[in-house]
Structures are given as structure tokens and as C-alpha cells.
């Protein structure tokens, strides 16, 4: 995700702290059942995403598209098939009730906020810094962290390989056919060579790392030193601030009914 975003203050927050606090926010979101509060939170998080991550408008919109799709599908499923008593609309098996509709919208917002919090995290965190921080602040074993970093480096190679296989098939006029058989031959034509090559490459890298005396367990020095500082404190204050604003704001601003969306 590097290179597509300008640096903002969120980039300077320690990745481990950011991860833990974001997970905390995520879990606390599970306990919000009030539609109006959820809406306000969603608005605040969209604003954070738009102005806090430094991602350009075009890319932000591109990212947002699948999120919007997920939002719509979440709303629809619950609205059409959810339980309720005040029916608005019925057609065959579909019964949209007031309760199920609002519950669906709530779920849509929840899916949206979950996704956006993750996206804010990803857009403002460099993977290498994340793994260095995990090793230094959270005592994540270097064996795992370096494996992750090496594997991320391999992804573009795997993508290139995929293209090569595709072109090779095209040149040879490979047609997998249709239905279950076609699916099977497509699977073995792409997945098997890609996985086999990846395993071979990963094995060679591991051998090379071990040859360089990489053990991945003992104490080691780090090229990037990450610490916990003022930006982390600011991030915590920021989250508390948002919580406060939404809490107080929901008393004054009522855009959607202030009701519990759970079954009563």
C-alpha cells in the first residue's frame, strides 16, 4: 500500500499500538446496537478515512467501491429475510418489515465501519514497519515476522508467474471447458503450478536464510528502531475524543430512529 498515500500523522503512530487500539475499537463496535449512534460513527469514520489517510480521492473511491457493494448486500439480506412485525412490503418469500430494514441498515453500517477501520490501518501502516514493530513492541518471534516480510516480497513474482502461465496456455490454445470438469482442469492448470513453484521458492529462501545463520529465535538487532511516543498518546486521545463526540452528538442529532435494532 506504500506510495499511494501522502504521509499523515496516523503514519507516525506505532503500528502495534495502532493495531491493538483499532482491534479494541472493532470489538467495542460489536456492542453498539443503536442505529443513530452507528450512523454518526460511520460518518465520523468516513471523514477519518477521507481526510486522515492521505490517500488520493481517486484511489479512495476505487477502494470504496467493493465496500459499498458489501454494504448493499448486508442491508439487503437482513432487510428481505429478517424477522419483524411491522410489515412494509411483501412479495412472495420477501417480507420487509420496519425492524428488519433498520437492522439491515445497522449491519450495513457495521460492515462499512469494520472495513474502513481496517482500510485506515492498512493505508497508514507500512507492512515492514508493522512487522518490525510487532517484533520490538509485542515480542513477536522474528522467525514469523521475517517469513511474512519475505512472503510479501514474493507476491509480485507469483503474480508474474500467473501471467506467464496464462499466456502459455493461450499460446497453446488451452481451453478448460465448462462446468465442473472445466473448473477442475482450470484449477489444476493454474493453482497447482503456482503453488508448487511458490513452495519451491519459499523452501530455497528458507535454506538461504538458514545458511546465513538466521535462527529467528535469539536476541537480535534491528535496522528500524520503533518506539512508543507522543503520536501513540495522541491517537488514544483521538479515539477517546471521537467516542465522546459521538456519545454527546447522538443526544442532539437524530438522523435515524434512536432504537435498539436487536430482537425484542
Amino acid at each position: 500500500m506504500e506510495g499511494i498515500a501522502k504521509e499523515t500523522w496516523l503514519h507516525r503512530v506505532n503500528p502495534s499500538i495502532k493495531l491493538l487500539l483499532s482491534l479494541g475499537v472493532l470489538i467495542s463496535l460489536l456492542f453498539i446496537h443503536n442505529l443513530n449512534v452507528m450512523l454518526l460513527l460511520t460518518i465520523v469514520i468516513i471523514i477519518c478515512f477521507a481526510f486522515g489517510t492521505g490517500v488520493s480521492r481517486k484511489i479512495a473511491l476505487l477502494f470504496f467501491l467493493p465496500f459499498f457493494l458489501l454494504f448493499c448486500s448486508s442491508v439487503l439480506t437482513m432487510a428481505l429475510y429478517g424477522k419483524g412485525s411491522t410489515f412494509w412490503w411483501e412479495w412472495g418469500i420477501f417480507r420487509v418489515s420496519e425492524e428488519s430494514f433498520y437492522r439491515g441498515v445497522h449491519l450495513g453500517f457495521r460492515a462499512l465501519t469494520f472495513g474502513l477501520i481496517g482500510l485506515i490501518f492498512v493505508c497508514t501502516t507500512h507492512p515492514v514497519r508493522l512487522f518490525y514493530s510487532l517484533m520490538q513492541q509485542l515480542r513477536f518471534p522474528p522467525k514469523f515476522a521475517y517469513s511474512f516480510m519475505a512472503s510479501i516480497r514474493l507476491l509480485p513474482i507469483i503474480w508474474d508467474e500467473f501471467q506467464t502461465i496464462r499466456m502459455a496456455h493461450q499460446v497453446r490454445g488451452f481451453s478448460p471447458g465448462k462446468g465442473w470438469k472445466g473448473f477442475k482442469s482450470k484449477l489444476s492448470a493454474y493453482a497447482v503450478p503456482l503453488l508448487a513453484q511458490s513452495i519451491r521458492r519459499a523452501y530455497r529462501i528458507a535454506v538461504a536464510m538458514e545458511a546465513k545463520r538466521f535462527k529467528g529465535n535469539q536476541k537480535r538487532t534491528y535496522y528500524y528502531q520503533l518506539s512508543i511516543g507522543k503520536w501513540d498518546f495522541l491517537f488514544l486521545l483521538f479515539l477517546l475524543g471521537i467516542t465522546g463526540i459521538v456519545w454527546i452528538g447522538s443526544e442532539w442529532i437524530q438522523l435515524l430512529p434512536n432504537q435498539d435494532v436487536r430482537l425484542v
Binding site: 519475505a150 511458490s198 529462501i205
Partner: peptide, 12 residues
Amino acid sequence: LTDILVTIVISL
């Protein structure tokens, strides 16, 4: 290390 690296590459 081999097991971990291979697993993580497949997983990614």
C-alpha cells in the same frame, strides 16, 4: 523456518 516460510507464502 522452512515450514513457517512455506506456510506463510501459501497463505499470502
